[in-house]
Amino acid sequence: MNRGGTQFWIGAILFLVATFAMTQIIGNQYPFFACYVILQFIVLAVAWNILGGYAGYVNFGTSAFFGVGVYTAVFLFKAAGAPLAVQIAAAAVVGALMGFALGLLTLRMQGIFFSIATIALTIVIETSITNWRYVGGAAGIQMQQPVAMEPFNSYVQMLFFIQALLVVLAVATSRYIQNSWIGRGLQALKDDELAAECTGVPTLRLKLLACVISGALMCAAGAPAAMYLQYADPSSAFNLNYSVSVLAMSLIGGTAHWAGPVIGAILLGTTQQLLTVTISSEVNVLVLGVMLVLFVVGAPEGIIGLIGKARRNRNEGEG
């Protein structure tokens, strides 16, 4: 366990050094545009998995949290010209509060009713933002990128590195939860909520905690998106595609382990980037649909599950 911890943190530091080195060496802006999106999906998928994977509450409201993150940043920037760090921190706080509210409102619902309620919440929030003139309403709002801070040459490079920091934060949080008593409690209530209660697990409180953490991370991941695109509008910020993509990433990677969503997000995120560039965004959605169906039907435990199975088979073959 301890050696695993050291290895994990060495890996995390190497990852950050590598991303930082990229910003200093590569002059072309395109790789940062593309990789930013993938990093953003890693944060979203890892955050989603804390509630959806560990606790088994399938949240279709990823786009609600993401969109609220986007608009928290938009609002703060327009109202006070707040710096990026403040935008992200504020988005995390708003996301935590929103997760708490969502939890109180919906966590007594079982399974599919929870999922439907999260879709409903997304549309209700999207409609409210659409009708909020100050942040641009349905037409959206243009955002002017400020000058990048030292040592970054461009704002996109800076956003890229900040998203990399969020990746480390999200993954470390998710990994901690998985290995701690919180993770054990969530796993128990995912298996059987009544049995968990009767074994002493405070199910409602744990679910609320998962909601708050997951919500804070998702909102934080959304906050830099407006600056990245230099534009925000409700129908793209709250697009259902985010929710389904993130869900698909976690399911494809495997929900039982923190690494699952990371693998899924890299795999599906890269595929989507390539497809959008080379073919069209429609085909992108088609691939998303097909991958989702294939994995749900063929490999319910995701890639992590497949690896585990292969490993067990090999061990049995040897023994």
Binding site: G56, V58, F60, G111, I112, S115, V244, L247, A248, L251, E282, V283, V285, L286, L288, G289, V290, M291, L292, V293, V296, V297, P300
Partner: peptide
């Protein structure tokens, strides 16, 4: 078990596939 959770993901996948096929 788990039919509800994975089932809803399954049907979302189907819905997306239908959408795109109709667009194409």
């Amino acid at each position: 078990s788990d039919a509800g959770v994975r089932g809803i993901a399954f049907f979302f996948g189907i819905a997306f596939i239908i959408e795109v096929l109709l667009i194409l």
